[in-house]
C-alpha cells in the first residue's frame, strides 16, 4: 500500500541532500507561502518571486532545522520575515522613486467610474494593511490570508495564543479606524 510521506520524512530526506523530497515539500506548501506573500506585497508577480526566494532560503537553511517546530511553522516564519524585509525595501524604493506602482484593474469591462472607485478602495485597503505594525501585520496575514488557527499563528510568531489574539484584535481596530476615515 502506498502511503503519503510525512513532512518530517521528507525533511529528513531533503537534509540528506535529496532534492526530489524537497520538491514534494515545495508542491505541498507553495500555495500557502504564496498567499502569505500576497498578504504583504499585494502583487501576484512579486509574491511569486518572493515564494521562490522563501523556498531557496529554506533549502539553504535546512541543515539548521532541528524539528522542534513543525516544518510548516518554520517555513511560514521564514516567509513572514522575508516578506517584512521585502516590504521595507519596497517602501524605501518607492520613497526614492525607483518603483512606479502599476495598479492592475480586474474590472476592465465595467463602467469607468465604478472601476475608479473600486481601484481607490483597493488602494485605501492596501495602504491601511501596509500601515500596520510588523507584528500586527504578520498576525493578520497568517490568520486571515492563510487561515491558520490562533495556536498556529502563535507558534509561527513564537508568542502565546492570548497575546496573538490581542495582536489580531489591535490590528482589526486599527484597520477599522483607518478605513472608516
Amino acid at each position: 500500500m502506498h502511503t503519503t510521506p510525512t513532512d518530517s520524512d521528507l525533511v529528513q530526506q531533503a537534509q540528506d541532500g535529496r532534492t526530489e523530497a524537497f520538491s514534494v515539500l515545495v508542491d505541498r506548501y507553495r500555495q500557502k507561502v504564496f498567499q502569505t506573500c500576497m498578504g504583504f506585497l499585494h502583487n501576484g508577480d512579486d509574491a511569486e518571486d518572493l515564494t521562490q526566494e522563501v523556498f531557496v532560503k529554506a533549502w539553504n537553511a535546512l541543515s539548521s532545522f532541528d524539528g522542534r517546530a513543525a516544518f510548516s511553522t518554520w517555513l511560514y516564519r521564514i516567509a513572514v520575515n522575508k516578506a517584512i524585509n521585502k516590504t521595507r525595501k519596497n517602501k524605501l524604493r518607492s520613497f526614492t522613486g525607483i518603483i512606479d506602482e502599476v495598479t492592475e484593474s480586474g474590472y476592465a469591462d465595467e463602467d469607468a467610474e465604478i472601476n475608479l472607485m473600486r481601484r481607490e478602495q483597493r488602494e485605501q485597503i492596501k495602504s491601511a494593511v501596509n500601515r500596520l505594525k510588523s507584528r500586527q501585520k504578520k498576525a493578520f496575514v497568517l490568520f486571515y490570508y492563510q487561515e491558520l488557527s490562533l495556536a498556529e499563528v502563535a507558534d509561527v510568531l513564537e508568542m502565546s495564543p492570548k497575546a496573538t489574539e490581542s495582536l489580531i484584535f489591535r490590528a482589526r481596530k486599527r484597520l477599522q479606524g483607518w478605513l472608516s476615515r
Binding site: 532534492t19 524537497f22 520538491s23 515545495v26 508542491d27 507553495r30 500555495q31 504564496f34 498567499q35 500576497m38 498578504g39 499585494h42 501576484g44 509574491a47 511569486e48 515564494t51 521562490q52 523556498f55 531557496v56 480586474g106 490570508y145
Partner: peptide
C-alpha cells in the same frame, strides 16, 4: 480576492 489568486504550478520547477 487576493487569497483566491493561484500560484503558477511551474514555480516548483523554477525553485528546483
Amino acid at each position: 480576492e487576493e487569497k483566491a489568486l493561484k500560484i503558477s504550478p511551474f514555480v516548483t520547477t523554477r525553485i528546483m
